[in-house]
Amino acid sequence: MKKFGVLAVLLLFTFSILAGCQSQGGKEAKVNFPEKAIEIIVPYAAGGGTDAVARALADAAKDSFSKPIAVVNKTGGGGAVGMAEGAKAKADGHTVTMVTVELVTLPNMGLAPFTYNDFKPIIQVNADPSALTVKADAPWKTAEEFLNYAKANPGKVKVGNSGAGAIWHLAAAAIEDKTGAKFNHVPFDGAAPAVTALLGGHIDAVTVSPAEVASHVKSGQLKILAVASEKRLEQFPDVPTFKELGIDVVVGTWRGLAVPKDTPDEIVSILYDGFKKAAEKDSFKEFMKNAGLGLEVKDGKEFLERMKNDNELFAKLINSLGLAKK
């Protein structure tokens, strides 16, 4: 019997610690903002790209606000856990979420308990297009040749992506949608394994971001046939956009900050001013350049516009791929 007594005490002890972990204080929002530390929720693991952008931005923004900024990683569900928590946070501006393009893909797949309407965007800081990339010694010299081959041999060309329903899968689907080509989509666990498989010649192409193939393009092992952006990239000025080739595909990932939708506009504008200043700092620009990430700073209104457009585009693509769980 005594054994159980000890066990009970231990369990009680354990649960009291748990209770301690959960309680979180919060004050009413006032116009003097921030009243306490600002927390940025990163829905992905420490060490990844989104985490790096958030930390670099937080570092650049530390002079913009009177209170410190903390970056907290809340991972799980391919970003769903962190963004769900960010959407449900107290709408006082002290909890900011680093939202990514998954904000408009996960809900359309039926995998997330939120939509982009649950957030009020503050600022967009990054955008990277999809880059159609093949091996340097591949038989296709141009995107047209590649797409003509894919049209002539439907389902034969193996196009690697970073996961089923992930942005680069949808990018390949967008290319199919606009050209009538039919690919054999091969999902990998992230972009890096897909690029490795391309290097090894196990697949024919990838549709990941330019940064993820840049080092292999520079060393002459891979070549980019076209990018799905509005304008040509500074880093690869010789690579045409799909638009130039008469294929209207603009698709890619983006990152930015957002707060819960009920956050007062005055606070949103204080946050915007602070982070805008940070995003324009040389240190942040340098970081983005070195990391190979596209710097694209837009205000909340333009950011919302992009979310809205992408939401419609992806809703259609996800349905056509049969990925929607309804």
């Binding site: 060490g47 990844g48 790096a52 080092s215 520079k218 060393s219 070195n290 990391a291």
Partner: peptide, 13 residues
């Protein structure tokens, strides 16, 4: 990532 942020591209080069 650490190497890239320092402006170094790992790889053959």
């Amino acid at each position: 990532g650490a190497l890239m942020i320092q402006g170094l591209q790992p790889g053959p080069l």
